[in-house]
């Protein structure tokens, strides 16, 4: 259990997907003008990441990894090169199913998260999470912890950033720096701050 918590905390703070691995930056910059929307997107990322990383882990271990098809008598087959296509399809399908389920059973939540869900299919934080999971040979339980932690870390980053950005709107920056340029520099400082957390779990 301690290693479960260890992976969650590490993925959330030490190896933050947004600020250390720099994943999901397009959405991070585009949907962070308001804390409210950032919160919605953040929750959607946590949900999708916690679902897709473990599913992809199962798919990889059962079908794609070298020798994974031994259960079907096909131990020699190595389909690991198919992981890009397979993972993106699993992610697209999960997003679609989650969208339908939310619409049917939790319309209130769907109204809050619905518009962000389709964005996540092409968010590299989601695909990146699954690819990192393969690279690190996580077991199923570990991948669950990693999905949860990395999703929460990404959500944390975008919510902090959106709060900063709401304040930034009131400041008087030089013409060319206003808006996007300033957003980058602020993210730089945020990433610098997260580097200070690198000793958190050891």
């Amino acid at each position: 259990m301690s290693s479960f918590l260890d992976i969650v905390l590490r993925a959330m703070f030490v190896e933050n997907l947004a600020l250390v691995f720099l994943l999901g930056m397009c959405t991070y910059l585009a949907v962070s003008r308001k804390v409210e929307t950032a919160l919605g997107l953040g929750l959607a990322v946590i949900a999708v990441q916690t679902i897709t990383v473990p599913i992809n882990n199962l798919v990889y271990q059962m079908l794609l990894a070298p020798g994974a098809m031994a259960w079907a008598g096909l131990g020699e087959i190595d389909l690991s090169f198919m992981k890009f296509v397979t993972f993106i399809c699993v992610i697209a399908a999960s997003v679609q199913i989650l969208d339908l389920l939310l619409e049917r059973y939790a319309p209130v939540l769907h109204r809050a998260l619905g518009i962000y869900l389709p964005l996540l299919t092409v968010n590299c934080a989601i695909l990146g999470g699954s690819l990192l999971m393969v690279q690190r040979h996580y077991s199923f339980v570990e991948s669950l912890a990693f999905g949860l932690g990395s999703g929460a870390g990404w959500a944390l980053a975008i919510i902090i950033f959106a709060a900063l950005r709401e304040r930034l709107r009131l400041c008087d920056a030089p013409g060319g720096m206003d808006g996007l340029g300033l957003a980058f520099v602020v993210t730089g400082f945020l990433a610098l701050g997260f580097m200070g957390l690198s000793g958190l779990v050891s």
């Binding site: 720099l22 340029g181 580097m195």
Partner: peptide, 10 residues
């Protein structure tokens, strides 16, 4: 480290 990339692109 990562933050320098943000500063430079900014």
């Amino acid at each position: 480290y990562a933050p320098s990339a943000f500063f430079l692109i900014g």
